[in-house]
Amino acid sequence: MMAYMNPGPHYSVNALALSGPSVDLMHQAVPYPSAPRKQRRERTTFTRSQLEELEALFAKTQYPDVYAREEVALKINLPESRVQVWFKNRRAKCRQQRQQQKQQQQPPGGQAKARPAKRKAGTSPRPSTDVCPDPLGISDSYSPPLPGPSGSPTTAVATVSIWSPASESPLPEAQRAGLVASGPSLTSAPYAMTYAPASAFCSSPSAYGSPSSYFSGLDPYLSPMVPQLGGPALSPLSGPSVGPSLAQSPTSLSGQSYGAYSPVDSLEFKDPTGTWKFTYNPMDPLDYKDQSAWKFQIL
């Protein structure tokens, strides 16, 4: 009977010793046993002879290597770790002494450095960015050149030099007046198309007034536009458009034309069986010896 009264063996659950049927240790109110408190290391007290050895090595170098620390530790009968900690504390003490010396050398008012006064946003004049500046400075420094007289040679050079070769001289006033084509001369031969040399188009003023001019072949195509416009036809070669000034309004060009419109200028042929003959000019830059190549039959 006494065997049943004795408590059973101890069981360990999660490293906790349980005594038989008792489960009081598993209750929430019972805390787990805490780790033992780490003991504080005792402070090391250095003797005068030990301090002399350490100070002598510190005077040589503030960062001794492990071999120098072990050698000193053997002399003063201390572990190497204590020597390492002593050098660490000695360097910190040396830095603190240097900072105190710097503070003593500075004057009393030198510690508080005078800061520059901050400028207020409204006091300083700042350039306004509302208006974009002129990058080319046209509004201040540029002045347009004065327009020359209508009959000045410089204007003629600016007008005619675009179309004339570089080897030719500017046309005088008398020749510029001949550039304007007359109405009857352009409409006299509506079906004849003559190819003149390129030099005649640039230099010869008579080429624009003769039936064999460069633009005589364009007349049949330009004249039928007159009834559609409801007024006189516009002429690209009329009046002052080739003269001194090219800047004319469309209203000033509306009254200039080749001449009176005639039914002869239409595109319809009077004789459907007729042929169109292209007159060959020996001055043509295209060297075609066979003139029969310039004739064709309209079917």
Rank of each mutant, 00 (worst) to 15 (best):
P165W: 12
Q175V: 12
R95H: 15
R176F: 13
R37G: 02
S188Y: 13
K277L: 15
S34F: 09
S199A: 11
L74V: 10
K38Y: 13
G217C: 10
P7M: 11
E168W: 15
S12C: 14
M225V: 05
Y280F: 15
Q256H: 05
Y63C: 15
P236G: 04
P232Y: 15
Q106P: 04
E42M: 05
F215P: 01
K88S: 14
L253N: 02
R176G: 03
P79D: 03
M2Y: 09
Y142I: 11
S249Y: 10
S143Y: 02
G110H: 08
T123W: 04
I298Q: 00
E268C: 11
Y63V: 13
W86P: 15
A92V: 13
S235G: 07
V160E: 00
P135F: 08
Q291I: 13
R41N: 13
E53V: 11
R91F: 14
K88W: 13
T159C: 10
G137Q: 07
S139F: 08
R115D: 01
A189G: 05
A56S: 03
Y208Q: 02
S210L: 12
Y11T: 01
L186V: 04
C132S: 06
Y221T: 01
L74F: 10
L218D: 00
G148L: 02
P149K: 10
P285A: 10
P220E: 02
P250T: 04
L222E: 01
T155R: 08
K118H: 03
P236R: 11
Q297N: 00
S266R: 10
A177Q: 10
A200G: 05
F58Q: 13
T47Y: 07
N14C: 15
L136I: 04
W163M: 00
S22M: 09
F58T: 13
P232C: 10
D24S: 08
S199D: 01
M193V: 10
E70H: 09
P282Q: 06
K289A: 01
G110K: 11
L286A: 01
Q248A: 09
V157R: 04
S292F: 13
T45W: 15
E55P: 15
L186E: 01
K93M: 14
S199Q: 05
P7I: 09
T159K: 08
L229D: 02
I76Q: 12
K118I: 01
L218N: 00
Y208W: 15
S252T: 06
G122L: 08
S81G: 05
S199W: 12
S216T: 07
L186C: 01
W276H: 00
W163Y: 01
A260I: 13
L78A: 11
R176E: 04
L246P: 04
Y63E: 13
L253V: 07
L78I: 11
I76W: 15
P64L: 12
G243R: 10
K295T: 15
Q101H: 08
L57P: 14
G122R: 07
S213R: 11
T45M: 10
